[in-house]
């Protein structure tokens, strides 16, 4: 069992999410940075999609109520156990009564804390991922608070270290490869160029639903009212004020704004490390290349983690 002493900016229970429900208005949710989440599980010997704690921006204090091996991965948050530094992307032993603290997110936004066998949460449609907008999953559908105790199965697993070359680079300048979205050609030529040339910055309106970006304005050639149409995580929506919104794990399932870009699947995990102030550059990808990249990345990580795909 693990006790939340301080929830910091936010802590939620997340797993690989609940796909296949967007037609009912329910986003997939799940760990915003799927790759770091999966690697945290890997290091404690769990299947990659085991429920873990997603810690946003730092400030979290946890107390362990049993001896166990735990792992952290994702944002660089100066993690310490009883005041001693522990390395990011590593697993380590904690004893009953030990305190793990995350300071602030120096690089990236979200750190994952994995426990052997995972953490207990209430399941909705096959997933315990917390979706705050509808109060689904997690602990009573909410973010964890101080004094909450989260159960963990009493299992022994074999800890592992991440092999060379598998540790992702977390950065405060996120480069996302993207394809043209359905309405890309309806944007002005200047806007089309800006999107792929000039970096944007995430504003304070950044959360699991999406990131409002600031940068060169993205404007339509001709304004028109669009009928609501489906969106995906990684869709860059372009509202009339010219400041795009990047849809994330908990983003709306449909929307009525122009869809300027679509981030390629292999890069979606990086969006989980976007915090207010992060620089974001979009790089043009071509359809066949994007698919090749995905197939290669899935094969690469699939060797390490059975069944993992981006």
């Amino acid at each position: 069992m693990i006790e939340i002493r301080q929830p910091g900016t936010r802590v939620t229970i997340q797993d690989a999410g609940r796909p296949g429900l967007r037609h009912l208005g329910i986003p997939k949710s799940g760990a915003a940075d799927k790759l770091s989440f999966a690697l945290a599980n890997y290091m404690v010997g769990n299947p990659w999609n085991t429920p873990a704690l997603e810690c946003v921006l730092g400030g979290q204090h946890f107390k362990f109520h049993a001896d166990m091996i735990v792992a952290i991965a994702g944002a660089e948050m100066w993690a310490q156990v009883n005041g001693q530094n522990v390395e990011n992307f590593s697993s380590f032993k904690v004893r009953e009564g030990d305190i793990l603290t995350f300071s602030f997110a120096r690089i990236g936004c979200r750190a994952y804390l994995a426990l052997p066998g995972g953490v207990d949460g209430s399941e909705f449609m096959g997933s315990v991922s917390t979706y705050l907008q509808a109060g689904l999953g997690g602990l009573e559908g909410r973010a964890l608070q101080a004094r909450d105790k989260v159960g963990s199965p009493d299992v022994t697993t074999q800890p592992r270290t991440i092999p060379h070359g598998y540790k992702p680079l977390i950065s405060n300048h996120v480069v996302l490869r993207a394809l043209e979205g359905p309405e890309f050609s309806e944007l002005t030529l200047d806007s089309q160029r800006h999107l792929f040339v000039n970096p944007y910055r995430a504003t304070k309106n950044t959360n699991r639903m999406g990131a409002r970006l600031k940068g060169n304005l993205v404007k339509p050639k001709v304004e028109r009212n669009m009928i609501s149409s489906p969106l995906l995580p990684g869709t860059l929506q372009c509202p009339p004020d010219g400041q795009p919104i990047l849809a994330m794990a908990d983003g709306h399932c449909t929307g009525g704004y122009f869809r300027g870009l679509q981030v390629i699947r292999a890069d979606l995990w990086q969006m989980g490390q976007i915090k207010p102030g992060t620089r974001i550059s979009f790089r043009r990808s071509i359809g066949d290349d994007a698919f090749e990249v995905l197939a290669r990345r899935n094969a690469f990580y699939g060797i390490l983690m059975d069944g993992f795909s981006f």
Binding site: G20, H23, I227, S228, P230, F291, L294
Partner: peptide, 22 residues
Amino acid sequence: WEELVPGYNSLLAYFCPDNFPP
């Protein structure tokens, strides 16, 4: 097929490309 999402005048078909190329 991972997601099949209807709109009023559109349909999104999102697939798992692992064994199912575009």
